[in-house]
Amino acid sequence: MEQFLTVLRPVLHYSLHFLAPGLLAFIFFRDRWQKAWLIMVATMVVDADHLLAKPIFDPTRCSIGFHPLHSYYAVGVYVIMLFFPKARIVAVGLLFHMLTDFQDCQWIGLIG
């Protein structure tokens, strides 16, 4: 079972990063869903803060609360951005990114 979860984790993680924003875009920004999807996928640039860590990638590290753009302060800024219509799509993308990374942290606890 642990081997199955180890394989499933990255599949779920990257599906949530790339496919789920399309669904969110279609549901919440239907009149411009394709543009919204691209903007939300572009928020993946938030992972540039991983370049500050050593090692850059550690499959056992939870990025929430560790990397600067994944900090609780940053998440607070992303929530505030929801209140500004021009920043709303970016905010939704960033917050869903944080949610995806948070669920990945939960998987770390499941499979060690």
Score class of each variant (00 low, 15 high):
T43G: 06
R30N: 11
D49K: 05
D58G: 02
K35M: 12
K54L: 10
F29P: 07
F26N: 01
V46K: 01
L51K: 07
A48Q: 05
F29K: 07
Y73A: 13
H50S: 03
V45Y: 07
T43M: 13
W37N: 11
S71N: 07
I64L: 14
I27V: 15
L51E: 08
F28V: 09
P55V: 01
D47V: 06
L38Q: 09
G65N: 10
H70A: 12
V46L: 12
D31C: 00
W37D: 11
K54I: 09
I64V: 15
I39V: 15
V41T: 12
I27F: 07
H67A: 15
F26Y: 14
K54S: 13
D31I: 01
Y72D: 05
Q34S: 08
I64Q: 11
L51D: 05
L69S: 13
Y72H: 13
C62A: 11
F29M: 06
V41W: 04
W37V: 10
G65L: 07
P55C: 02
F29S: 06
D49A: 09
F66M: 12
F57K: 02
L24P: 04
I56P: 01
R30L: 01
H67C: 14
R61I: 06
R30Q: 11
A42F: 10
I64A: 11
L38C: 10
R61L: 13
L51N: 09
A53S: 13
D58V: 01
F28I: 08
K35T: 14
F28D: 09
Y73R: 09
I27L: 14
F28P: 09
K54P: 00
I64R: 03
R61P: 05
H67F: 15
F29H: 08
W37T: 15
V46T: 13
K54R: 11
G65M: 08
R32P: 00
T43K: 01
R61T: 08
T60S: 13
M40S: 10
I56N: 02
T60C: 02
T60D: 12
S71T: 10
P68R: 03
